[in-house]
């Protein structure tokens, strides 16, 4: 079998010959596993000063999906107020998250230009699905997100009539049924 499974405490390699990666610890000149999972050996990194292969233990099962700074996430707007839009993060990249992560898009992070003139209620509405980038890990309650790029913003929104709207410009969307135009910060997809 190419991949070997290991349990906590199992000796994997000599600490002098390998680097200890995630899921391992160094104990008495040995690298030991700390998790139940598959042992993997990564070849020595070229650019790094230490030219040693790295041994790590990867947990079998689904790795938790956690938003990191710089990730593009898909989120649903749950509530708005003049200062910010509160969202629930649904996906990080293409992967759905398993638990609820809340985020906020503050008024100054909605778009890149003329940020003093931004009105939250003219950019997002509760229920909209938004593509945004993680700006920082934020405070204890929520991540800080930004939509201040062309490819970020609202990707799916329903009109007052409850019909999915079609984007007509970077800040307007139109309902195909009632032809009513509503204001949104629209994402430019496939850019």
């Amino acid at each position: 079998m190419a991949e070997t499974l290991c349990t906590p405490g199992e000796r994997l390699a000599l600490a002098a010959e390998y680097d200890a990666g995630s899921g391992t610890c160094v104990r008495d000149s040995f690298i030991c596993a700390t998790l139940v999972g598959v042992k993997r050996v990564l070849p020595a990194g070229e650019g790094k000063a230490v030219q040693r292969p790295r041994v790590e233990v990867v947990r079998s099962g689904v790795e938790p999906v956690v938003p990191r700074v710089g990730d593009v996430v898909t989120a649903r707007v749950v509530r708005i107020n003049p200062r910010l839009a509160a969202v629930d993060i649904l996906c990080v990249g293409p992967k759905p998250v398993r638990q609820r992560y809340s985020g906020v898009i503050r008024v100054q992070d909605v778009r890149a230009t003329e940020i003093d003139k931004v009105q939250i209620q003219a950019s997002f509405r509760p229920g909209d699905v938004v593509r945004a980038e993680v700006l920082s890990l934020g405070d204890a309650r929520s991540y800080h997100l930004t939509t201040a790029k062309n490819h970020l913003g609202v990707v799916h929104a329903r009109s007052v009539a409850g019909v999915p709207m079609v984007p007509v410009s970077w800040q307007e969307m139109q309902c195909p049924q009632t032809k009513a135009v509503e204001n949104r910060k629209v994402a430019k997809l496939d850019a």
Partner: peptide, 11 residues
């Protein structure tokens, strides 16, 4: 704990 993937020194 092992199922919950909590890092441990040993069994």
């Amino acid at each position: 704990l092992a199922v919950a993937a909590v890092p441990m020194r040993d069994v």
